[in-house]
Write a protein that binds this DNA or RNA. Sequence first.
DNA 1: ATTCCTTATCGCAAATGTACGATTGGTAGA
DNA 2: TCTACCAATCGTACATTTGCGATAAGGAAT
Lengths: 101, 101
Amino acid sequence: MDRALKNINYKEETKELAVFAKALAHPTRIAILKHLDNQTCCFTGDLVEVFPLAQSTISQHLKELKNAGLIQGELKPPKIRYCINQQNWNKAKLLFERFFV
Amino acid sequence: MDRALKNINYKEETKELAVFAKALAHPTRIAILKHLDNQTCCFTGDLVEVFPLAQSTISQHLKELKNAGLIQGELKPPKIRYCINQQNWNKAKLLFERFFV
DNA sequence: ATTCCTTATCGCAAATGTACGATTGGTAGA
DNA sequence: TCTACCAATCGTACATTTGCGATAAGGAAT
């Protein structure tokens, strides 16, 4: 295993920024975040209606955003309410600011 | 062709942001940009010495950064001098700022 | 025209990303 | 306990990304 994402010792900040950037590297995920930010929060089902994508696809994008730490889910049976994770959002904001001189 | 990057009509701003984010979605490219920013400019060969990656790999990353518009190359025979594209850099900076509330 | 140095591109292999439909899982209420 | 609803996960297919070595391409100087 020495291909694809070779292990180089980058600074922690660099790696974190790359993770956040990767989460934003797809227009659907950016649109989801914008939507979440406007609505404060929303349910998965709402997004499935807003975007012309399968429920599984939306769910996958949400998973990636969650893995990157940008959103968090809250059980609100039988739905799940997703919100921006404000703490990590601020962290990402800071990292991007620091990066762009 | 209805897989991978399905054609949805996202706002221009959303798509542009995704392109910039994608360019930053790899730690090597972030590190290259940081290096460029510190040194103002540098040659491909310098980067090949700084990073433990093949010359072709570095060249590929440079190509992606160039395609995203974040850097530009200037002929300085027999080398090529890469610099930040300040105009697009500012554009990206603005888009990220606008995105992060 | 030829040679030399640097960088881009090609061809390949493996990993990851993106999308779908189908299935499973988890919670609240009947 | 059973059912119904919603969302996550599985399995699949294809595209893209990431890495390498090898080769081609470009410009300057001889």
